[in-house]
Design a protein around this nucleic acid. Structure first.
Lengths: 154, 154
DNA sequence: CCTTTCTTGACTAATTTTGACCTTAATCAT
DNA sequence: ATGATTAAGGTCAAAATTAGTCAAGAAAGG
């Protein structure tokens, strides 16, 4: 691997300390200091190289004892199915169509009955309770996409 | 649990002495002294980590013989607590408080890990994506109440 | 060139730590 | 009994400690 930029070096470093651990926790300032870069460069590296598409989940906390946690996740085998479903949802979706998708998830055994029921409650018109139909359908789409995205990994 | 800050350490300590006991009584000054922090830090730890949303009930008494009593509440054989939790959510709730509740549901085994993860995704700020904070917190409250209500009646 | 990626830094946000000041309850002296 | 003293715990906000965002400028690739 040829490291052209310091970002590449930092990426390689983080991956090396990840090693066999499923997750690591770093202090942003410490890493930045170690490579003599500004702290926000760490955010850049994480944003461009440790996102879900690349199989990583990142969480962080500010304040005293703050940290950035990087976790490697396994993307599922049927990731394609989920990505297709997500692509099909688009910007807005009706309650009926959402229910169809949830039903598909259940039939494909991607979710349990109970998970499906909870999702149905979540996307219900009454729950979202938006001012107009358009807002409601957009919100429902965001919610559904977020849920499907979460299903993409274990 | 990784203890990064002294607050985390105190949290872990209190949970460890809680052990199997349903409740403990501590003297604030004593704990503060033990960890060499100011007494009000104990209040901070309790406020942020031992509230109802976290599955704890706290009572205290001032003056001579004063104490702070921390009690773990049981969601399983106490439908009242679930009701209290729902009532506590009210009209609006922050993402952090919602997350605490969901975590409690998981710890009390009312929901599975995956169900909890999906719920967390649903109530996330990014998912709801409302115009202003108030709208966001109201929507989140409706969503969470709908989900909890569903759990109550299944 | 032109576009994309990287680097920097000023400004912002979240969380923890600390301390000054307040309230409540028990005990003691009269 | 009553008022003073002592012994808890409570509140709140400032200061300290982390991390996040965003946009401008620099560098690298095509």
């Amino acid at each position: 691997m040829e490291e052209r930029s310091i970002s590449d070096v930092i990426e390689a470093y983080l991956k090396s300390i990840l090693g066999d651990d499923p997750r690591i926790e770093i202090r942003r300032a410490e890493i930045a200091d170690h490579f003599d870069v500004v702290p926000s460069q760490i955010n850049y590296v994480i944003k461009t190289r440790f996102n879900l598409q690349n199989g990583y989940l990142v969480q962080s906390k500010r304040g005293g004892g703050g940290y950035i946690r990087i976790e490697r996740v396994n993307l599922l085998d049927d990731d394609d199915v989920l990505q297709m479903l997500i692509a099909n949802i688009g910007e807005a979706i009706s309650e009926k169509d959402a229910a169809k998708i949830i039903k598909t998830l259940y039939e494909e055994k991607l979710i349990s009955r109970r998970e499906g029921d909870l999702m149905l409650v979540g996307v219900a018109k009454q729950t979202l309770n938006q001012a107009n139909k358009q807002a409601e359908e957009r919100l429902r789409a965001r919610l559904l996409v977020a849920l499907l995205t979460r299903l993409r990994y274990e």
